[in-house]
Simulated scan of single mutants.
Amino acid sequence: MPEMSDPNDPWAPPESRPPQPPPYQPPPGVHDQPTMTSIPGTGGELPPPPTAPGGPAQSTPYGYPAPTTPTGGYGYPGYPGYVQPGWQQVPSNGMGIAALVLGIVSVVVFCLYGLGVILGILALIFGIIGRKKAQRGEATNHGMALAGVILGAVGIVVSGAFLAFAIWMIVTHGNTDTYEEEHGADPFDTSLVSHR
């Protein structure tokens, strides 16, 4: 009996090496399997594939179905049996957002001598445009546009009232020289003077 040598010894004679396992054989692939051309037990051929919802497909010279455009949508042409969803329009909510921001700013800066009135008018205009877009289905922020209209109107009223008050104060009490002539030399004198 030959003596067993080290299994890792490359110079050992083949008779003295331990038996090696067979080399790895991968399992057969899917494409190596036989193709089924009929249903077992029926004796007939396979039935044709069902027709697409749009009707039978037109074939090209190579046997592939002709590309078709999906109805009612945008995008690239599709193939029968594959329904490509149409591109949906992104809502244009810019006018409603601008109306809300301008309405808030017009209420906050009401004391800046007319800037609140201008911003309130812009908020009112953008809010009306935004509401019309939302009614047509082009935008999804109807409430935001309505809030912009309301805040714009409030900004116009509050800023207009403050502007009118500021103008009234300037007109009636703006000239200190007139006050000095009517009431004395120092308008800020707080001493009590009795005139008998």
Rank of each mutant, 00 (worst) to 15 (best):
Pro14Lys: 15
Glu3Trp: 01
Gly148Pro: 13
Thr42Pro: 00
Pro27Asn: 06
Cys111Val: 08
Leu119Trp: 02
Ala123Cys: 12
Tyr62Phe: 09
Ser92Pro: 09
Pro34His: 12
Ala123Ser: 14
Pro77Trp: 02
Ser92Ile: 04
Pro47Ala: 13
Gly72Ala: 03
Glu182Pro: 00
Tyr64Ser: 08
His142Lys: 11
Leu192Cys: 05
Thr140His: 00
Ser5Met: 08
Pro40Phe: 08
Val154Ser: 08
Gln88Arg: 13
Pro14Ser: 10
Gly75Leu: 01
Leu112Ser: 06
Met169Ile: 07
Thr140Cys: 07
Arg136Thr: 11
Pro70His: 02
Cys111Phe: 12
Gly160Ile: 01
Ala166Glu: 09
Met169Tyr: 07
Gly43Pro: 09
Phe162Asp: 04
Gly143Gln: 09
Val105Thr: 11
Pro85Thr: 11
Pro13His: 12
Leu119Tyr: 04
Pro61Phe: 00
Phe188Pro: 00
Ala161Pro: 00
Ala164Tyr: 07
Ala66His: 04
Gly43Lys: 02
Val101Glu: 05
Pro34Thr: 04
Ile39Val: 15
Gln33Glu: 14
Leu163Asn: 05
Glu182Ile: 05
Ala52Phe: 11
Ala134Phe: 14
Thr71His: 10
Gln20Lys: 10
Pro187Met: 09
His195Thr: 09
Gly41Asp: 14
Ile97Cys: 08
Tyr179Lys: 00
Pro2His: 03
Ala164Cys: 11
Pro26Arg: 07
Gly54Gln: 15
Gly127His: 07
Ala185Val: 13
Gly54Asn: 13
Pro19Phe: 10
Val154Trp: 09
Val105Asp: 00
Thr176Cys: 00
Val107Ile: 10
Leu146Gly: 01
Leu122Ile: 06
Gly120Glu: 04
Gly130Cys: 13
Glu181Val: 12
Pro19Cys: 05
Gln33Phe: 00
Pro50Val: 01
Asn175Lys: 12
Gly174Glu: 02
Arg17Asn: 10
Gly174Val: 02
Leu102Ser: 03
Thr172Cys: 04
Leu192Gly: 07
Asp9Pro: 10
Ala185Glu: 14
Asp177Phe: 15
Ile39Lys: 07
Pro61Asp: 10
Pro67Cys: 06
Met1Cys: 14
